[in-house]
């Protein structure tokens, strides 16, 4: 308070008003950070080893047990699969003669058809003999074995569509 001010002046001065207002504001309560009651826990400096669940023997025998069980399961599974495969193979072997017999007949028919076709096609050509190249046999066949016609000779007289089907079927096999 300055000496040249009356008490009334002092009360009404702007500084005093500001100070009074400041006092009326609720003050922030500070709390000092202190250690917990009873103090901090002691510092852990020693090594902590985990609790042991299984010993070496237990682990080893567990491994052996699991592996053995897996082997047994695998062997049983494989035997089952083999049995099923053998059954399928049996079925395939069993029906082979029936398919082969039919196939042989169809093949011989086709060969005969081809020969007839060639006779018909080349009847006006002088000096042509069916199954030979101008009288010279195509194969050296002293022992009279069954001649295996080449693919081109088999499909020559087919229609283009049949040729296509035949080749596609052969390719799939």
């Amino acid at each position: 308070m300055r000496t040249d001010q009356s008490p009334a002046d002092f009360r009404n001065s702007p500084e005093t008003a500001a100070t009074t207002a400041a006092i009326e504001v609720k003050m922030v309560v500070y709390k000092q950070d202190l250690p917990p009651g009873g103090g901090f826990d002691p510092i852990e400096w020693a090594k902590r080893t985990p609790r042991k669940r299984m010993g070496g023997f237990t682990q080893f025998f567990a491994f052996v047990g699991f592996t053995t069980a897996a082997w047994v399961a695998f062997a049983r599974n494989k035997a089952k699969r083999d049995r099923e495969a053998l059954e399928l193979r049996d079925a395939r072997i069993a029906i082979e003669p029936f398919i082969l017999a039919e196939r042989d007949r169809a093949f011989l028919k086709h060969i005969r058809k081809n020969r007839d076709e060639e006779n018909e096609l080349m009847k006006d050509v002088k000096g042509w003999e069916t199954g030979t190249l101008w009288g010279e046999p195509v194969y050296h066949n002293v022992r009279d074995r069954f001649k295996r016609a080449s693919l081109e000779e088999i499909i020559t007289h087919m229609s283009p569509k049949d040729q296509d089907d035949f080749l596609w079927d052969k390719m799939k096999r």
């Binding site: 011989l108 060969i111 005969r112 081809n114 020969r115 060639e118 006779n119 003999e129 069916t130 199954g131 030979t132 046999p137 195509v138 194969y139 001649k147 016609a149 000779e153």
Partner: peptide, 11 residues
């Protein structure tokens, strides 16, 4: 065809 008319082919 390698089969001549003398070769046997079933009918």
């Amino acid at each position: 065809m390698p089969f001549t008319n003398q070769d046997y082919l079933p009918s």
